[in-house]
Design a protein around this nucleic acid. Structure first.
Lengths: 112, 112
DNA sequence: GAAGCGAGCAACCGATGGTTGCGCGTGCCG
DNA sequence: CGGCACGCGCAACCATCGGTTGCTCGCTTC
């Protein structure tokens, strides 16, 4: 029942803005800091910082082109992150079910 | 394809220490700030603060008893959180699959 | 009643997410 | 070709947050 989640990855997807960023990148097939910031309630610089951390953990890749810097999602990495995410969810789900069973067992014992 | 996750809940569960806290509470069937802090790499006060935020979002409940303050998980709420978590995971998973299909379609079109 | 333990409160520190302001390079267009 | 506009990066600054230390308060126990 490990909690051993890649902490970098988790905290990267932990931020709501970064989740929206990934979503926008997936939906639009890429984008730059400026274009993305127009669809978000934060400034370009904030978006740039977020793209920086997503880049560092490998969830996105940047390709400079002229004066622009186009980012796109590294799907394999994101798939890894999603897998970890759902594994944590699953482990808690399992534990909750176990707890519930125990509780019910106690309940039954008390009633009899 | 909403990203509309209860942000309070998500950020509460987002912190690794808080996840471990929930895990310990589930495993031990409850605990106090001091006992929990002994099993974690942080001080009692830090644990107390975390329990505070978990309490505010309703994931745990506290029952004062003498000079102690025993916390336990509100399983229904945690179940809600886990559900949201896995729903986000699932939505990304779905989107990734769609993107992949599109990519493969383009690939096929290019080859023909 | 005194000692000890659990909890709460306050001050402080470092990291982080956000902002504004600026300067630099690139690209477009008179 | 020269200038303007746009996209980006850098730096300074601010608020919030997670963490610590140090203290006080209150229950419990001897």
């Amino acid at each position: 029942m490990s909690l051993t989640v890649d902490d970098e990855l988790w905290s990267a997807v932990g931020d709501p803005i970064r989740r929206q960023l990934l979503d926008l990148l997936l939906a639009g097939g890429g984008g730059t800091a400026t274009t993305l910031s127009q669809r978000l309630p934060v400034t370009r610089q904030a978006v740039a910082k977020h793209l920086g951390v997503l880049d560092r953990v490998g969830l996105v890749r940047a390709t400079p082109s002229g004066r622009e810097r186009r980012y796109q999602v590294d799907e394999a990495q994101l798939a890894r992150a999603v897998a970890q995410l759902s594994s944590v969810g699953a482990s808690w789900d399992a534990r909750l079910r176990r707890i519930k069973q125990i509780a019910e067992a106690i309940e039954r014992a008390r009633e009899s």
